[in-house]
Amino acid sequence: MANLRAIRTRIKSVENTRQITKSMKMVAAAKLRKTQSAFASLRAYAGESGKLLAEASAGQTGIENPYLTPHAECRRICYVLIVGNRGLCGTYNQSLLRYCENLIKDSDKENYVIVCGRWGKDLIAAAGLEVRENYEIGDTPTHEEALTLAERLKELYREGSVDEIRLVYQHYRSVLSQVPEQAQLLPLQKQEETGSADRSTIFEPDRDSLLNTLLDMYIGNTVHAVLLEARTGEHSARMTAMTAAADNTEELINDLTLELNHARQAAITTEISEIAGGAEALRNNTAGG
């Protein structure tokens, strides 16, 4: 009977695992919805400020802004690695770390690594990345957190500690697919001018300081958008991984139940044949005696 009991214990434990993976999936789904709605509000805000930026910069050629001017020589690149806050989300974090490692290996420039997210401090250290700064970013990044990070990045660029800033994150393609990607934050790349120069617009106090304000907003919004995109990807990856895990436990439970029934049937058959054998022997004894 030891076998039967072992199988039952096993089923119990797999059922517990299923419970856990199911709830983790539900939590990830709820967080995913939250980040998605935050993303929608940000998109409206960023769209509006982008439109104003295009309008204010339309027809302007010699804009003086520290963030638009590349440094004379690019010696040191700052990589902002945006990892997840937790594991259990498939290869989301590992593949991103691998990607970032390769980026750094392939470049002959110095690097300055900033990590955002709580995941795998030891793994990142083991990969040989020298992490200079660490930022805690919540599961649904707020604008506040994005601005703090953006402020620090701008400062690094302004004081010349780094000559280029790149955000390294998992680009969100769909719930099922995220791809590691890098995007250059600073120096800002000039975009195609779309706005029309409306001469009648009054600029208060003047066009240049207005442009500076708008560019600041633009940088903050870009950082926030990337953080939200990375988190959306993380929650989706976790949801997918947990769905797969829950499905697996289901399958395992079915297999184990089948095995349990076989074992039980075998035990019953053995018992019956033992009883039958015993009865036979008893009858023979009585007949003989």
């Binding site: 409306d198 617009t201 207005l210």
Partner: peptide, 8 residues
Amino acid sequence: DHAPMLCA
């Protein structure tokens, strides 16, 4: 009916 204006 204010004139178009963009201000910081």
